[in-house]
């Protein structure tokens, strides 16, 4: 109907202006030198720290190009000999080429991301912005649902999904997300929604907007960082979730990446460590890309989205 935001509100959606312009003229050169040194030190610190954080990945990368037998005999960071056979062998070691498992994981993960974005944000809007009886009670119940370890829930869940004949489909993995069972993200979004100034929806309400419009046209654009967080985390967690995928997917053609990775090692017999590392690296690539690409939404959120 009408514009939901007045022009004055739009200013708050502008990108942050840099505060550096306020430096006094006299001290500018000195400060610039000092800040260059400071920033140099900062970068040096961040790089050094980054190496500590990266070490495991580098080590895994190094191990993935070593022959299986040398992984334990020569555990150092620099491989004496680069051999890519772990990648080629690992890719085709299981019943299906590894791409099959990547594809299955992608289907599960996309379903989960979509489900969590829609259902959790709806529920979060209710908890953050609506007044209704029993709000605190239901909120407590919601939190309670994430306090019970999955290991005692999984057997009854299996029984339930088995009755529905959902075992060995992606439904037990995706449908719960469509129904907002990931309370973690509801809570996350509630906290973010509560950080959005009330004046914005008050103004919209005066203009006659209903809650669905406020949700869709004000909250969602302003909560892009929260939505990005939800999407990224859901992606990564669903991508790495071993336990429930192991239990609910029984046929190899439905297996996902975590299950496939686990079949390279067996504590009672031989293990193909090299193939495990190689395929772990392969399966990290999509997650890393999602993060690298997605993280800018975490921080650009308000600044670029604006309000129309």
């Amino acid at each position: 109907m009408t514009d939901l935001a007045t022009p004055s509100k739009v200013t708050f959606a502008e990108p942050a202006s840099s505060p550096e312009g306020r430096a006094s003229r006299a001290g500018r050169t000195v400060r610039r030198v000092r800040s260059t040194v400071a920033s140099g030190l900062k970068h040096a610190g961040l790089v050094a720290f980054g190496f500590v954080m990266l070490y495991p990945l580098l080590w895994m990368l190094a191990s993935s190009v070593k022959p299986n037998a040398l992984i334990f005999r020569e555990p150092g960071l620099i491989p004496t000999d680069v051999d890519l056979s772990n990648y080629t062998d690992g890719w085709s070691a299981l019943l299906h080429p590894f791409s099959r498992y990547l594809l299955n994981s992608a289907i599960v993960v996309l379903g989960c991301v979509l489900g969590n974005l829609v259902s959790c944000s709806l529920a979060a809007y209710a908890f953050a912005r609506l007044k209704f009886r029993g709000r605190n009670f239901w909120f407590a119940i919601m939190l309670m649902t994430i306090m019970l370890p999955i290991h005692v829930i999984i057997v009854p869940q299996y029984v339930m999904f088995s009755t529905l004949e959902w075992i060995n489909t992606f439904l037990p993995l995706i449908v719960p997300k469509l129904l907002a069972t990931d309370a973690f993200f509801i809570f996350l979004m509630v906290q973010f929604f509560r950080g959005i100034p009330r004046e914005l929806d008050e103004a919209a309400r005066i203009d006659g907007a209903g809650h669905l419009r406020i949700y869709w046209q004000i909250m969602m654009p302003l909560a892009v960082p929260a939505l990005a967080t939800t999407a990224i985390f859901t992606f990564i967690w669903a991508w790495n979730d071993f336990f429930s995928q192991l239990i609910f997917l029984t046929k190899p053609d439905m297996y996902t990446v975590p299950i496939a990775l686990r079949t390279f090692v067996d504590s009672t017999g031989e293990s193909s460590w090299g193939a495990l590392f190689a395929m772990s690296i392969v399966s990290l690539i999509p997650v890393f890309l999602v993060f690298l690409f997605g993280q800018k939404y975490l921080v650009k959120g308000i600044a670029t989205t604006g309000i129309k």
Binding site: I154, V155, L246, I247, R262, T263, V265, D266, S267
Partner: peptide, 17 residues
Amino acid sequence: VPDFTDWDGYWNKLSTA
């Protein structure tokens, strides 16, 4: 129909099933 996993996962999966 094959149904396989590693040792630890096997016993979880089997007892649940």
